[in-house]
């Protein structure tokens, strides 16, 4: 299970553990879907702990990203390490995903969008 923190009525933060791979990708999908069901349009995924991101981990985010955007919201990644950024770059996803430097930048982004 991933730790979560409610920021506002529309925004929630999900903190990843050290790895997001086959062993917990389905749990990430479940956590994201649950947050969407609960009405959080903006979901911040704080990756400060994340050391390994597998393609299954990426898939767990991509599979539910469309729903947030359809609802006028987004899934925002923050505190992403260089190694993880490189992986996302290789997958050509850096421009597609919303990636912020740190948690405060992510929160500001959500607040600005949620006005």
């Amino acid at each position: 299970m991933f730790k979560t923190e409610k920021i506002s009525e529309t925004t929630i933060v999900i903190y990843t553990s050290k790895s997001l791979d086959n062993s917990n990708a389905h749990e990430m999908t479940a956590a994201l879907s649950e947050a969407q069901e609960a009405g959080y349009r903006y979901i911040i995924i704080d990756m400060r702990e994340l050391e390994f991101l597998s393609s299954a981990g990426v898939g767990s985010i991509l599979g539910v990203l469309g729903r947030s955007r359809e609802d006028g919201g987004d899934i925002i990644l923050c505190n992403v390490r260089d190694r993880i950024l490189h992986i996302l770059g290789v997958l050509d996803l850096c421009d597609f995903l919303t990636i912020k430097q740190d948690e405060s930048a992510a929160r500001e982004f959500c607040l600005a969008k949620d006005v």
Partner: peptide
């Protein structure tokens, strides 16, 4: 992971997620 916990439906689910992540597709 599958050898430790042989859950076929989970195997397919994670396999599909792997394809999603690998090819940058949502579905």
């Amino acid at each position: 992971q599958f050898c430790e916990k042989p859950d076929f439906e989970l195997l397919i689910e994670v396999l599909l997620m792997t394809f999603c992540g690998q090819f940058s597709v949502a579905d």
